[in-house]
Nucleic acid binder design. Structure first.
Length: 931
RNA sequence: GGGCGUUUGGCUCAGCGGGAGAGCACUGCCUUCACACGGCAGGGGUCACUGGUUCAAAUCCAGUAACGCCCACCA
C-alpha cells in the first residue's frame, strides 16, 4: 500500500480524473460532494480574466517533493519538553471514489495546521492517512463503468466483480490522495491505509465475531429501506428525502357488516398500491368519533381479505380521515402497529419492487404500474372517494435517487444498548471534549436516541459477513476462519452473502490504522500513541461516525479514540445555502489552488472559520490571502536584498524600534498559541496577518530602510533583527502557509534549527516573553501616530512629502523622554525640518493641530496653506470633542459609577476626560487664532 | 416536531460588560530604489426589534421577527 513514495509525489492540482462525484457517505465530507462535479464541469470563469499570472505549483511541488525525500511526514522524533509526548491525528478517510471538495479542503487544512504546529513543537507527531473502500459508492461506480462496456455485474459474478473493483481502485483510488498532496497535507504517505487492506479485513472480522459471540450482533426481521435499483438496504442515516408534489388518495374500504348505517370507511394514502398488502386499519385511541369501529372488520377490495380495525397510539386523528390502512410489510410505522396488534405481514414486492406471485393481474407489475392498476380498479368499483394534492417528501436512495421501498427482510443488527453507556460517559466526564463545546450536548442527545443499527448490506464490495450456515442441520456461527464443513453434521456450509455497512469498518478507523488487529492493543503504535489527539470532522457525521468510533474504541481498547473533536463549520455556497449541483453554487478547491495557490486557499479558508456552524464561502478572502502571500514574498525579498555583508549573530534590541517589534512578536506568539490551543483558526490568521502586514511591513521594514543605509554597526544589527523577526514569523505562518514559508526559509541565512522549516522549532512563548516591553510599545504608538498625523496634514493640504515640515509635540515628561529617543525616526518617517518635544511646547503660529496617542502635535504650516479647510476641519473636531466630553462628564458625575465601577476604570475615564478637555481648549484656541 | 446558529458600515465577518473594528468594495493622492497582488490619506454604522438586569449593554437575560443549518417524522 505504500506505492505513494518519492516517485509519485509531484502531484499538481489537476488530478480530476474522476470528476463526477456523487453524494456519498465520505467521513471527510460536508455532504456537498456533488458540488465539486459541477464546479469542474462548468467552471465558469467569471471575472477570472484579471487573474494573476503566477505558476503556484512551480513554487509548491518542489518543496513537497523535498519533504517526501526527507521523510518529513513519518512519525517525528520529538524533542524538548514534549519529547516524550505523542500527537497523532487520523484522517477521516476520504472515499476512494472521492474528489476533493470544499469540505475536504477546509477539514484537511485544519488538520494539517494542527499537525504541523505539533511537529514543530517537538511532539512525536504523525498524521495517519488512508482511504475508505466506500461500499455502495464504489460498487455503483464500477457497476456503471462495466455497464458502459456492456458487461453485467450479475453475469460475471461476485468474484470477477470484486476484481473489477480492485482494478478500479488501482486506477482511480488515489485521486483524492494526490489532491491532498497538492494541498500540502503532511500525512504519513509512507504508511497509507485502506479499509479493505488485509489487516483491516481481519480486524473487522474480529470485531464482528467478538460482538456476535457477546450477543451484541443479532439477526432480525425488520423493515429496512430497500433500494430496488441497487437491491440493497439503505441505512436510515443514508436516506435522502426529496420533496415531491404527491397526492393523497382517499379509498373506500367496505365494512364487512354495516356499522350505524355506514357501509364503508375511507382511508387516506399516498401509496395506494400497498393496499394489496394491507392487514388492518388503525384509528387513534383518542379519537372518540371512530371508537365504535374498533374491533369491526373491513373487506379489503381487490384481494377480498377480511382485516380488523384496531386502535394504535401512533395514529394522528387529525390526518386524513383519522383512519389508516396498515401494511406491516411495507411501512416501518405499520410494522410497529402490526407487531402490537398481531397483524399479518404480507409481502407484496420482490427485491426489484415488482408485485410478487399470487396477486393475479397485479403480479409482475412495477410499483408505478401497480399503483395505476389499483387506482383504476378502485375507480371502476366506485371505491375511489376523492383525491387531494399532498406535497410530501419521499425516501430515496442516496446514491441513485430511486424511491426506496420499506421492505421486510432478514438483516444483521448491532445492539447499541450496552455500548452506548460508556460512549456517553466519556463525553460527560470530558475525556472527549468538543470544540465548539456546544456539540457535546448534540452528541449526548444523539447517543440517547440511538437505535439498533442495521449493518448488513446486500452488496458485493465490502467486508463480507463472516457467518456460516448449515442448511442441513441449522448450525450457524461467526468465525475468524472460513468454514466449509459443518462441525455438527458434516454437510457443506454456506457463508452469508451480505457485506457490512461501510460505517461498520470506519468506526474502527482510529485503532485499526494504528495496528489493532487480532493482537489486541499491544501493537507498538497503539501503545505509543493512543488515544489520538484530535479528530476534525463535519457536523453531519457526528452520529454516523464520531459516536460509533467512541463506542467501538471503548469496547475493544477500553480507551477513547481521541481527546478532542473539532466540529468545523460547514462550507456553504456564497448564497448561504449548502453547495449542491442543482443550486449551482459549488466551488472547486482544485481551481482555487490554481488561482490562489495552496497557501492562499488554506489561509483564506481558515480566515473564514469562526465559532459559527456555517461558513458562507467568500472567495475574496482567498484573494486577500494570495495577496498576503505575495506580501510575505516581497518582504522576504526586501530582507534578502539588504543582506550583503551579513554577519550571523543573535538578535539585539538596541533601539526602541527593535524592542517594540520584539515585544509585539512576543505578544503575537502568545496569542497565536492560545488561539491554536482553542482551535480558533480565524483568530490565528487575523493575528498573523495584522502583525506581518501592519506592523512588520508597514513600520518595522520602513524604519529599517534608514538604518540599512546608515552606520555599519547599526546596519549589521538591523540585518540580524530583520532576519530574526522574519524567521520567527515564518515559523508561525508555516502551519497554515507551508509552501511559501518553506521556500523563503530555505534562502534565509538564519541559524536554523532544522534544514527544513517543517522540522524547525516552534517559537517558545515563554522564551520570547523576555522581550515584552510596554514602554517601547508606548513609544512606537506615539511615533506611528505622530507620523500618520503629519502625513494626514500633508494629504489634506496637498503638501508634498518632499517638503520638510516643522513640528512641535506637547506631551507629558515621561512621553517626552520616550519621544526624544525617537528623533531620528520621526525625522526619517515624517521628513521634518525641526522637531520640538516638550511638556510646555509652544504652538507655532499658523499651525495645524492634531491630538493623537495622548499627545498634542503642532504642524507649522505658515505660508503653505489656505486655512479655510483647516477651519472646517477644526469646527468638526470641536463638535465631536464636545459630544464625547458631554457623555463622559455625565458618566463621571454619576454617583453610581463613581462608587460601583472598578477604580482603574474610573481613573481611565478621568484621564480620558482630561485629554478631551485639553483637546477642546486647544482646538478652540486654534479656531480663534484663524479667526 | 426537536435542537442549533445567524442578524454589527455596500459585501463577508471579527469584537461578546466600560472609548464601534478588519478584509474587500468606495474616494483622493502616489508608477519613490520589497511589493500597483502595492503605498499614503480618507468617507461610511442610532451594532434586527421590544423589554429587563447593571453605575455602565453591540456585548448578559427574556421575548419578538427574519434568514439558515442539523436531526427526527411525513398513512
Amino acid at each position: 500500500m505504500d506505492n505513494n513514495t518519492d516517485n509519485n509525489t509531484g502531484t499538481t492540482a489537476d488530478a480530476t480524473a474522476d470528476a463526477t462525484a456523487d453524494n456519498n457517505a465520505d467521513t471527510n465530507t460536508d455532504n456537498n460532494t456533488d458540488a465539486t462535479a459541477d464546479a469542474i464541469a462548468d467552471n465558469n470563469k467569471t471575472e477570472q480574466e484579471k487573474k494573476i499570472d503566477f505558476d503556484f505549483s512551480a513554487h509548491e511541488v518542489p518543496y513537497f517533493d523535498a519533504w517526501m525525500k526527507e521523510h518529513a511526514f513519518v512519525r517525528s522524533a520529538g524533542w524538548g519538553k514534549h519529547a516524550q509526548d505523542t500527537y497523532t491525528i487520523v484522517i477521516p478517510p476520504p472515499n476512494i471514489t472521492g474528489v476533493l471538495h470544499m469540505g475536504h479542503a477546509l477539514n484537511n487544512t485544519i488538520q494539517d495546521a494542527c499537525i504541523r504546529r505539533a511537529r514543530m513543537q517537538g511532539f512525536q507527531t504523525r498524521w495517519v492517512l488512508g482511504t475508505d473502500h466506500a461500499g455502495i459508492a464504489t460498487q455503483t461506480r464500477v457497476d456503471r463503468a462495466l455497464a458502459e462496456k456492456g458487461i453485467s455485474r450479475l453475469a460475471i459474478g461476485r468474484e470477477a466483480f470484486i476484481e473489477a473493483c480492485y482494478e478500479w481502485y488501482g486506477e482511480y483510488g488515489s485521486t483524492i490522495v494526490n489532491q491532498l498532496k497538492a494541498m500540502g497535507a503532511s500525512c504519513d504517505y509512507e504508511d497509507e491505509h485502506f479499509t479493505l487492506e488485509p489487516g483491516y479485513v481481519s480486524a473487522v472480522r474480529k470485531v464482528f465475531v467478538d460482538w456476535y459471540h457477546d450477543e451484541l450482533i443479532f439477526r432480525g426481521k425488520r423493515i429496512v429501506n430497500w433500494c430496488p435499483h441497487c437491491t440493497t438496504a439503505i441505512a436510515d442515516d443514508e436516506v435522502d428525502y426529496i420533496d415531491e408534489k404527491g397526492k393523497l388518495w382517499f379509498l373506500r374500504y367496505p365494512l364487512t357488516e354495516p356499522v350505524e348505517g355506514m357501509d364503508y370507511i375511507v382511508v387516506a394514502t399516498t401509496r395506494p398500491e400497498t393496499m394489496l398488502g394491507d392487514s388492518g386499519v388503525a384509528v387513534s385511541p383518542k379519537d372518540k368519533r371512530l371508537k365504535h369501529l374498533v374491533g369491526k372488520t373491513v373487506m379489503l377490495p381487490l384481494v377480498n381479505r377480511e382485516v380488523p380495525i384496531v386502535s394504535d397510539f401512533v395514529v394522528d386523528p387529525d390526518f386524513g380521515t383519522g383512519l389508516v390502512k396498515v401494511t406491516p410489510a411495507h411501512d416501518a410505522n405499520d410494522y410497529a402497529i402490526g407487531e402490537r396488534a398481531g397483524l399479518e405481514k404480507i409481502n407484496i414486492f420482490d427485491e426489484t419492487a415488482h408485485v410478487v406471485e399470487g396477486f393475479g393481474d397485479f403480479s409482475g407489475l412495477s410499483r408505478d404500474e401497480a399503483r395505476k392498476a389499483v387506482l383504476a380498479r378502485f375507480e371502476e368499483l366506485g371505491l375511489l372517494d376523492h383525491i387531494e394534492e399532498h406535497p410530501h417528501s419521499v425516501m430515496t436512495c442516496y446514491r441513485c435517487y430511486t424511491k426506496l421501498e420499506p421492505w421486510l427482510s432478514e438483516q444483521w443488527f448491532v445492539s447499541v444498548e450496552r455500548l452506548k453507556a460508556a460512549a456517553a460517559q466519556v463525553v460527560e466526564e470530558g475525556r472527549v471534549t468538543f470544540f465548539p463545546t456546544r456539540w457535546k450536548q448534540v452528541y449526548l442527545d444523539w447517543m440517547e436516541n440511538l437505535k439498533d443499527w442495521c449493518i448488513s448490506r446486500q452488496l458485493w464490495w465490502g467486508h463480507r459477513i463472516p457467518i456460516f450456515y448449515c442448511d442441513a442441520c441449522g448450525f450457524e456461527d461467526a468465525s475468524m476462519d472460513d468454514l466449509s464443513v459443518c462441525p455438527v453434521c458434516g454437510k457443506v456450509l454456506r457463508q452469508d452473502e451480505d457485506v457490512l455497512d461501510t460505517w461498520f469498518s470506519s468506526q474502527l478507523w482510529p485503532f485499526v490504522t494504528m495496528g489493532w488487529s487480532d493482537g489486541g492493543t499491544e501493537a507498538p503504535e497503539l501503545k505509543l500513541a493512543y488515544p489520538t489527539q484530535v479528530l476534525s470532522t463535519a457536523r453531519d457525521i457526528m452520529g454516523l461516525w464520531v459516536a460509533r468510533m467512541v463506542m467501538a474504541s471503548m469496547y475493544f481498547c477500553n480507551e477513547v479514540p481521541f481527546k478532542h473533536v473539532i466540529i468545523h463549520p460547514t462550507v456553504m455556497g456564497s448564497d448561504g445555502k449548502p453547495m449542491s449541483k442543482s443550486r449551482g453554487n459549488g466551488v472547486d478547491p482544485v481551481r482555487l489552488m490554481q488561482d490562489y495557490g495552496a497557501d492562499g486557499m488554506r489561509f483564506g479558508l481558515l480566515m473564514q472559520v469562526t465559532g459559527s456552524q456555517d461558513l458562507k464561502f467568500n472567495e475574496k478572502k482567498l484573494e486577500s490571502s494570495r495577496n498576503f502571500a505575495n506580501k510575505i514574498r516581497n518582504a522576504a525579498r526586501f530582507v534578502g536584498m539588504h543582506l550583503e555583508g551579513y554577519v550571523p549573530g543573535p538578535p539585539q534590541a538596541t533601539t526602541p524600534v527593535d524592542r517594540w517589534i520584539f515585544s509585539r512578536l512576543a505578544g503575537l506568539i502568545a496569542r497565536v498559541d492560545r488561539a491554536f490551543d482553542n482551535y480558533e483558526f480565524g483568530e490565528i490568521t487575523r493575528e498573523l496577518y495584522t502583525f506581518f502586514w501592519s506592523e512588520f511591513c508597514d513600520w518595522y521594514i520602513e524604519f529599517s530602510k534608514g538604518r540599512l543605509a546608515g552606520d555599519a554597526r547599526d546596519r549589521e544589527i538591523c540585518q540580524r533583527n530583520l532576519v530574526f523577526v522574519l524567521e520567527t514569523a515564518l515559523k508561525l505562518l508555516h502551519p497554515i502557509m507551508p509552501f511559501i514559508t518553506e521556500e523563503i526559509y530555505r534562502e534565509l541565512p538564519a541559524e536554523k534549527d532544522a534544514p527544513y522549516l517543517i522540522g524547525a522549532h516552534w517559537p517558545d512563548a515563554q522564551a520570547y516573553a523576555q522581550y515584552i516591553d510596554p514602554r517601547s510599545e508606548r513609544a512606537l504608538i506615539m511615533v506611528t501616530e505622530v507620523v500618520s498625523a503629519v502625513r494626514s496634514a500633508r494629504a489634506r493640504y496637498g503638501i508634498s512629502p518632499k517638503t520638510p515640515l516643522s513640528i512641535a509635540i506637547k506631551a507629558t515628561d515621561e512621553d517626552c523622554a520616550l519621544l526624544e529617543e525617537q528623533r531620528g525616526l520621526l525625522n526619517d518617517m515624517a521628513n521634518l525640518a525641526t522637531l520640538t518635544v516638550a511638556p510646555d511646547a509652544e504652538k507655532p503660529s499658523e499651525s495645524s493641530v492634531a491630538h493623537v496617542a495622548g499627545v498634542e502635535v503642532f504642524i507649522a504650516l505658515a505660508g503653505l496653506v489656505d486655512f479655510e479647510a483647516e477651519r472646517a476641519r477644526l469646527i468638526n473636531e470641536q463638535q465631536k470633542t464636545a459630544v464625547d466630553m458631554k457623555k463622559l462628564e455625565a458618566k463621571l458625575s454619576n454617583e453610581g459609577f463613581l462608587s460601583k465601577a472598578a477604580p482603574d476604570i474610573v481613573e481611565k475615564d478621568r484621564a480620558r476626560f482630561e485629554e478631551l478637555q485639553n483637546k477642546f481648549v486647544s482646538v478652540s484656541a486654534r479656531l480663534e487664532e484663524i479667526g
